[in-house]
Computed example of a mutant assay.
Amino acid sequence: MLNRKKVKIISAVFIIFSVIIFAFPSSVFAENSTGVEGFVTRLYNTCLDRNPDPDGFANWVNNLVTGRITGGRAAYGFIFSDELINKNLNNDEFLIVMYKAFFDRSPDPGGYENWMGLLNSGSSREFVFSNFVNSDEFANICSKYGIQAGKVRISGSRTSVPTSSPGKNIVVMGDSLINKSDWTQRLGGLINSSFPDSGYNVIGSAVNGEMSFQGLARFDSTIAPLNPGIIIIAYGTNDIGSDPGRFQSSIEQLIEKSKRTGAMVFLNLVGPIYHSGKSSWPVFNQIIMNVAARYGVPVIDVANPLNQNPGENLSEGMHYSSAGADVVSRVAYSAIYRYLR
């Protein structure tokens, strides 16, 4: 049994510790720079611009440690919390938080301008958030803290796609090389910088793991209704290892369907791949170039510039790093520039 004196001492210590937590939170959480605790502290700092409160901090850490939520779900809870919503951030302030929290950097001009254009034209913040939190850059941040990023699916979050000016939508269709980087957003930024009053809108229409025949199957329902002025067909990565004849036929049919919409069509080469089972990527690029020549379709050659420094431009030997996304966006911009007006 504790005597009264010891109880008083313990109570006093508890009170002093509580005062320290609330009065000097930075001193309590300053050492939480690694692991799950560091990840949660970082979300408080970058999203809410404050240090953690003890109860909230313990709850987030517990949910992550026990696997009840992923890093992405935790991020959603912070970004769409009442506390942040009540700050009434404008689109500029919202994007600053997105880049800081999920890319750990300041906005690049091209990507920023395109995200701003999407927000201003009706895309929801949940749609923008999902692209940031499902990126390789956020996955890398989570990995540093031993956190699984997971995937956040947003259903119906894109409130609108501008269709008032037919021909102004530039649609890039493909796979995870679009979804796992921001090169299409950077492309949009470059275009809007050169043609600020044009109304161009770059739309990435991609499905992770998708092959060309699957893109062909969804073209009429997901691409044609966008009234595109330009369509960039970017398939091949997932087709490698499958029947080359089916790939060629699918690309040919995609070109034909695209042309029937009245859009200008471009074929995007497969980037260099240093990944098991994907060594035949040059063969599939040759198929793309042969088809492009027969149909008179311009080719966007991302393979050669990316291959000049694959260690810097690629992640996982296949997907585009931030540097790679910049390379691809600039190559694509150079290819389509003369067709814009």
Rank of each mutant, 00 (worst) to 15 (best):
S212W: 02
S315E: 03
A75I: 00
S123D: 15
E126D: 12
G71T: 00
L84R: 08
I85N: 11
G174P: 08
M1S: 13
D243V: 03
N131M: 12
V7E: 11
I21G: 07
K180A: 15
G150S: 08
I336H: 07
V133C: 03
P196W: 04
S212N: 02
E37G: 10
Y295K: 00
P54K: 10
S18N: 11
G146K: 06
N309Q: 01
D92F: 08
I287Q: 10
N192W: 07
S26D: 10
M116P: 04
R68L: 11
R218C: 01
V61L: 13
A101Q: 05
V28Q: 04
T261A: 06
A293C: 01
E37D: 05
V207W: 13
A139K: 14
F78K: 12
V270F: 10
V328C: 08
R260F: 07
S26N: 10
S157N: 13
F138A: 09
S164W: 05
D136H: 10
S322Q: 11
V283M: 12
G117Y: 11
N131Y: 09
P225Q: 05
G188V: 07
S160D: 12
V283P: 01
G35I: 04
V202Q: 04
N192H: 02
F132Y: 05
N134H: 07
G35S: 02
Y44I: 04
P225E: 08
M98P: 00
E252C: 12
S106T: 15
V171Y: 06
S160F: 11
V61S: 08
I223Y: 07
A139P: 01
